[in-house]
Amino acid sequence: MHSQDGPLDGAHVRAVAAILVPDNYTRVELGADLALLRLASPAQLGPAVRPVCLPRASHRFAHGAACWAICSLVLPADHLPLPWVLQEVELRLLGEAACQCLYSQPGPFNLTFQLLPGMLCAGYPEGRRDTCQGDSGGPLVCEEGGRWFQAGITSFGFGCGRRNRPGVFTAVAPYEAWIREQVIGSEPGPAFPTHSWEPQSGPWEPREENCTIALPECGKAPRPGAWPWEAQVMVPGSRPCRGALVSESWVLAPASCFLE
């Protein structure tokens, strides 16, 4: 999905057979804002439709790395122009301590916020650029070794592009075990080990071992600015959410798309 003005040539429309959400998700501010969608029929992979790579639980993206998010707005006042082609915004990854320092300072409505395990911040201390309302579920992707890895899922923020209030994303790496468990429990696949879904930590591992779902062609974009894993999730009675194709049969999206 590259435009909100209807499917483009090469885009696929698929029904969803199952929606899987962590048991303890309640609302975005308490974390675990992710969901797996099993497609009713597999996508046909090609130049316009490819999965993004997923990081291992032990992988650490470098603080300050320049990554990209897909969005409909790049500043609070910038409404998406016709033909509603999605925008992209470059954001810098912020370390947990640096992000918590920013969120400990009074901000909009004099609110502060306590980051929780499994959350990831990206943006700029001075504001500048950000994802915004309507962008939930869009992937935050970082390039490593010529491939694009999904570092985060757009979750929530305090306004758009505000000083000291970078965007908050669900970090994908800590949920590797949960993703594996759901995929194995829903369809035949390789014998991945199973663990609890709680965020995990560990030493850095070589990037060639980063893909959690064995996909030799994951994370390949045909050209800069083209994101063939970008998906739009249509929920009856609600506004669309975003997601990312992570294999031919699975889309990663936010839990808030379905439970709020």
Rank of each mutant, 00 (worst) to 15 (best):
V13D: 05
S104T: 14
W229P: 01
V89T: 00
L80Y: 12
V233W: 06
L115W: 13
N164D: 08
S104Y: 08
A32D: 04
P22D: 04
E248H: 14
R60T: 03
V13K: 09
L37V: 03
A62P: 04
L86V: 04
K220M: 06
G157D: 06
E260V: 15
G31L: 09
G31C: 07
P22R: 02
P106H: 11
A77H: 11
Y103Q: 06
A35L: 00
D9Y: 11
V172S: 05
E29W: 15
P254D: 06
A255K: 06
A231L: 05
Q200L: 08
G161C: 01
T170S: 13
P193S: 13
Y175D: 01
E209L: 12
I184A: 09
V49K: 07
A40Y: 07
L37S: 00
L75P: 02
L111T: 13
G107W: 15
V52T: 02
P125C: 03
H195I: 02
M119H: 11
S72I: 10
P7Q: 10
L102Y: 14
P199G: 06
R163N: 02
L245N: 00
G145I: 07
W197A: 00
H2D: 13
C241P: 01
R239L: 15
V13N: 08
G146K: 02
L245W: 01
P188E: 10
G137K: 09
C121N: 12
E230L: 15
A177P: 03
I19P: 06
L245T: 12
L116M: 14
Q4N: 09
D135I: 01
P55N: 08
T194H: 14
L45A: 09
P199K: 03
G237Q: 12
L45I: 03
G161N: 03
E205Q: 08
G152C: 09
M119E: 12
E198M: 09
G118Y: 09
F156N: 15
L93N: 10
C257G: 05
S104M: 09
S196A: 05
L37Q: 00
S41F: 02
A122W: 05
F258W: 08
F61C: 07
P216W: 08
A122E: 05
Q150M: 14
G189W: 01
N24K: 14
R60G: 05
D78T: 15
Y25S: 06
A18P: 05
A69F: 08
P106F: 13
R162C: 01
G202Q: 11
A253Y: 13
R223V: 07
T26H: 15
W84T: 10
E205T: 09
F149N: 02
A77L: 12
R128V: 06
